[in-house]
């Protein structure tokens, strides 16, 4: 019965959404909006070839700050929701630890890990030239660490280092923002205060590249922290209540 009601409601919702979206046919030219400015300004004023990056980092850079914060928040909230082991692999299930991964995977992980990290670095350094950027690069780096974490169950990620990377990268982002406040022409938060360079060059876009690098480090550290927390949840037993 409940299912029927839900399905009926959903169909009504779907009908109305569809009728709304029919008014903007797929692929047809849209109402002139901000996108035309963006497509013009990004290569001309900002010298960033990837317009999506320009929007994400400069035009709507505040969103990105919020987004990084969301990930930071998620990793903090995860830490407060779940207990992490304090010391090196205590509280892990010994049975699971006994199932070592195969020699091949371990050797492969050793060889591929540096390449994956390099790929991640490539993606976030070239955020303003090619598809990708800080988030994607950070996610790739975190995936590299994931490979190591699942191949070597005893691998111990140093949370001190993660904390430092995370904090410094986040601080860099905000400080670049405040730098725009102090050095740039119009004294605006996150405003570009470096020379723009030339289009399609590694050194272009002013602060955009630097911000994306900071974002990459931060996202990488945060997602690695999330994965490590999840992978090393204590097997059983919660700490007694603290009210």
């Amino acid at each position: 019965m409940k299912k029927l009601i839900v399905i009926t409601l959903l169909l009504i919702l779907g009908f109305y959404l569809m009728s709304t979206f029919i008014s903007v046919p797929f692929g047809a030219e849209r109402i002139a909006g901000v996108k035309d400015y963006y497509l013009k300004q990004s290569p001309e004023t900002l010298k960033v070839s990837n317009v999506v990056t320009a929007i994400v980092v400069s035009f709507r850079g505040f969103d990105t700050l919020g987004e990084v914060t969301v990930l930071f928040l998620a990793s903090t909230a995860l830490g407060s929701i779940l207990y992490r082991r304090r010391t090196h692999h205590s509280g892990l299930n010994p049975q699971r630890e006994a199932v070592v991964s195969s020699t091949l995977v371990r050797t492969g992980a050793k060889v591929l890990f540096p390449m994956i990290i390099l790929l991640g670095a490539y993606v976030f350094v070239h955020g303003h030239l090619t598809p990708g950027g800080g988030f994607q690069g950070g996610a790739i780096i975190a995936t590299g660490f994931l490979l190591i974490l699942i191949s070597y169950r005893k691998f111990f990620i140093n949370h001190n280092v993660l904390t430092w990377v995370e904090a410094l990268a986040g601080t860099t982002f905000v400080l670049i923002g405040i730098g725009g406040f102090i050095f740039a022409n119009q004294n605006n938060f996150l405003e570009n205060f470096l020379p723009e360079g030339t289009l399609n060059n590694l050194i272009s876009g002013g602060v955009v590249g630097i911000i994306y690098i900071a974002v990459g480090f931060k996202v990488g550290a945060e997602i690695t922290g999330i994965l490590d927390t999840l992978l090393t949840i204590k097997e059983a037993g919660l700490n007694p209540d603290e009210n």
């Binding site: 050793k110 890990f113 540096p114 390099l118 490539y122 350094v125 590694l202």
Partner: peptide, 17 residues
């Protein structure tokens, strides 16, 4: 950039690469 980045990565991966 390549020299710099690969230097940093190889610093902590050369032991097992």
């Amino acid at each position: 950039a390549g020299v710099f980045i690969s230097f940093i990565i190889s610093l902590f991966t050369y032991k097992f690469f």
